[in-house]
């Protein structure tokens, strides 16, 4: 590989890592924006997306083989919708059980129940699918775009599966942005984020807003989990911990509570990771990423694009 190819390949790697991290980070940041809670179970909803979509493909009889033609279109779409629904509902259930009863309790209490919810979900997955690595078959066709379609002579690898991940996540992020800025419910979310008490006085059903937020966050994480499975092919019950850790970092880095910040943070972490793996050394990657996080927070405690408390979400 020439050095240009290395740089291009690593940029593509960073872009794909960034897109699933950003999708998960959105869930962290939205929930924080509304109720100032770090939903530690959120990374595990990402795992749910991976496991549930895998199970649904099996149910619909995909049987480990690559889907083609019309079958690919209907099954993939259906599985995507069902997975997003299921993961949204899981996130809402987590909120109802673990956070809602503690809405007025001291901050520390829901933080601990969040950790508990995360462990509970992980153990449910471990019992359901076993603790080992799980293989996710190539349900989405895999074609080397640069070689087979564009006939470029390069060592850079970019397949339809990478394209799927990017093509799925970026429109969803834009969609979320539109939803929050243009719809009535989005407006209610922004109002609740600014001041829940005032919003409630103005007739906004705050609990409904919170529920919607959890649902959307969960659905996005579910979609990310499914896309992740289709392009990286391995995962297990604990995968949400790692993904969640970095996504949460992304949210804080960008400015927690800020949607643009979460997306920016996600991509930034993706690029930092590939940079460190390539030019610093795999064993330093985590130290590198978290040092950057500390530096950013020391000089900009509100995160890269975070604004004052009153302006969040």
């Amino acid at each position: 590989m020439s050095s240009t190819d290395i740089i291009l390949q690593q940029l593509l790697n960073g872009l794909t890592i960034g897109s699933y991290l950003a999708m998960i980070a959105l869930g962290y940041t939205m929930v924080y924006g509304i109720i100032e809670l770090i939903n530690f179970a959120h990374g595990d909803v990402f795992t749910a997306g991976f496991l549930i979509s895998l199970t649904l493909f099996e149910w619909f009889g995909a049987g480990g083989k690559t889907l083609t033609g019309f079958r690919l279109v209907w099954m993939f779409t259906l599985v995507l919708i069902l997975t997003m629904l299921a993961c949204g509902i899981i996130n809402v259930i987590v909120d109802r059980i673990a956070y809602k009863p503690l809405r007025k309790a001291p901050r520390l209490a829901p933080l601990i129940t969040a950790v508990a919810a995360s462990f509970a979900l992980e153990n449910i997955y471990a019992n359901w699918k076993g603790p080992s690595q799980i293989f996710y078959p190539d349900y989405f066709p895999r074609v080397d775009i640069l070689h087979n379609w564009l006939h470029l002579n390069t060592t850079v690898l970019f397949t339809t599966q990478d394209a799927l991940l990017i093509g799925l996540t970026i429109p969803m992020m834009l969609g979320l942005r539109l939803f929050i800025q243009r719809t009535k419910l989005g407006k209610a979310m922004r109002a609740t984020a600014q001041n829940a008490a005032a919003a409630s006085i103005m007739g906004i059903d705050v609990e409904r807003v919170i529920m919607t937020t959890f649902f959307i966050g969960g659905a996005l994480a579910g979609a990310a989990g499914m896309a992740f499975g289709n392009f990286l092919h391995t995962g297990r019950y604990l995968m949400g911990f790692d993904a969640g850790l970095f996504a949460f970092t992304a949210a804080v880095l960008g400015g927690i509570g800020n949607i643009t910040g979460a997306v920016l943070g996600g991509f930034l972490i993706g690029f930092l990771k590939v940079f460190s793996d390539q030019w610093i050394g795999g064993q330093w990657t985590r130290a590198f990423i978290f040092t950057i996080l500390i530096l950013v927070l020391v000089f900009r405690p509100q995160g890269l694009v975070g604004e004052d408390e009153a302006e969040k979400a």
Partner: peptide, 20 residues
Amino acid sequence: RDGVESTDIDFRALLTKIRA
């Protein structure tokens, strides 16, 4: 030579380096 985090889920960046 590289050491990896055992909980890591995405090794493609490292593998790109190995390919190179």
